[in-house]
């Protein structure tokens, strides 16, 4: 604030710390996060011998992957300055769609397509409402979280919807080259989103729009199109996450998705994506997902009761947010 005030000329190539590049800063924070992941893993490996066994690593990865897919999805709109709080409800609703189709004998791929289409449609709906009403997407998705969640409960009457089929169960429970299938899915989603951000002009637009939407709009970029597309992506990713959970559990309950609200947001924020938009990386979110998974699992192995884990999870997120701000003010 204070340093926006003076406006005297700065002549010659500026030297010293103020000319350090943005890329270095971003890279250093991702590397720092990776170091934290390694460090935390090392600590748990030391105090909980079971931590490094293959089966445990597979467990950590599988548990992380289910909400990780959704977290990767919401990274994109968050970078574009549109926080998606409704992803949990979309997870449930899309999964219910798929499960209902499977129960009525629809072929698996077709049933999944129905679920993904639901996710796409709801994501676009979020974006369109925010655009038409000129509202912050955080408000809109807070509202649609209620609406989508209510619909999920209403159409299932708060009953579980079963998802039969061994092929379908493979998505959530199977292994491929010794690695759980959900992890492959998460890596595939992460990889494609990273490529999308880095190698398409849409990805670059997300950063521009998220950095300063007013300036982007006056630069001739379409805020609406970018954000609607970004929210559509998170809708589809949420749907995929819901489908994987359903496959893993063999059923879906209307309230399941919303339980991942906090973890999903936490992974993205810990991963270094700014809530205000404009900065963020997919790799960061992946590291955030791993970190949360490792902490959960490590606490389990060390023997910390489940209820304490809830307590710690929230406090860890708050801690990460505070650190994020301290880092920001240094910037």
């Amino acid at each position: 604030m204070a340093n926006s005030e003076p406006a005297a000329a700065q002549s010659g190539p500026a030297a010293g710390p103020r000319s350090r590049s943005l890329r270095t800063l971003r890279e250093s924070s991702t590397v720092g996060l990776a170091a934290v992941v390694v460090l935390v893993s090392a600590v748990f490996a030391f105090i909980a011998p079971n931590f490094v066994t293959a089966s445990n690593i597979a467990n950590v990865a599988r548990a992380s992957a289910v909400f990780g897919i959704a977290a990767l999805g919401i990274t994109i709109p968050m970078i574009a300055g549109a926080v998606d709080l409704s992803f949990g409800a979309i997870m449930s609703l899309a999964a219910i769609g798929t499960a209902a189709q499977l129960s009525s004998g629809t072929p698996m791929l077709q049933a999944m397509a129905v679920g993904l289409a639901i996710g796409l449609g709801l994501g676009i709906l979020n974006g369109v409402i925010a655009t038409v009403l000129h509202l912050d997407s955080m408000i809109v998705t807070l509202g649609t979280l209620s609406v989508f969640g209510g619909v999920a409960f209403m159409i299932t009457n708060a009953q579980r919807t079963y998802a039969p089929g061994d092929d379908f169960a493979f998505l959530g429970r199977g292994f491929l080259i010794g690695v759980p299938v959900p992890v492959w899915i998460m890596l595939a989603v992460g990889g494609s989103l990273a490529l999308l951000l880095r190698f398409t002009t849409f990805g670059q637009r997300c950063f521009i729009v998220g950095d300063n939407s007013r300036a982007a709009s006056l630069s001739g970029l379409s805020i609406a199109r970018t954000r609607i597309a970004a929210l559509a992506i998170s809708g589809v990713a949420a749907a995929l996450a819901g489908i994987v959970i359903t496959s893993n559990d063999g059923l879906i309950y209307a309230g399941t998705g919303e339980r991942y609200l906090l973890q999903g947001l936490a992974a993205v924020v810990i991963g270094g994506t700014a809530l205000r938009g404009g900065t963020g990386t997919v790799v960061g979110t992946l590291l955030g997902i791993f970190l949360l998974g490792i902490v959960d699992n490590g606490l389990n192995l060390v023997g910390v009761p489940g209820v304490w884990q809830d307590v710690l999870r929230g406090l860890i997120l708050i801690g990460a947010l505070v650190i994020d701000r301290l880092r920001d003010s240094r910037l």
Binding site: V307, Q309, D310, G314, I318, L321
Partner: peptide, 22 residues
């Protein structure tokens, strides 16, 4: 610390629920 209030208090909500169980 100027943390986004919505997210911070949402995280706090999770912890408080946990404390209730504890």
């Amino acid at each position: 610390f100027r943390v986004n209030a919505f997210i911070a208090t949402l995280a706090m909500a999770g912890s408080l629920r946990g404390i209730s169980f504890v």
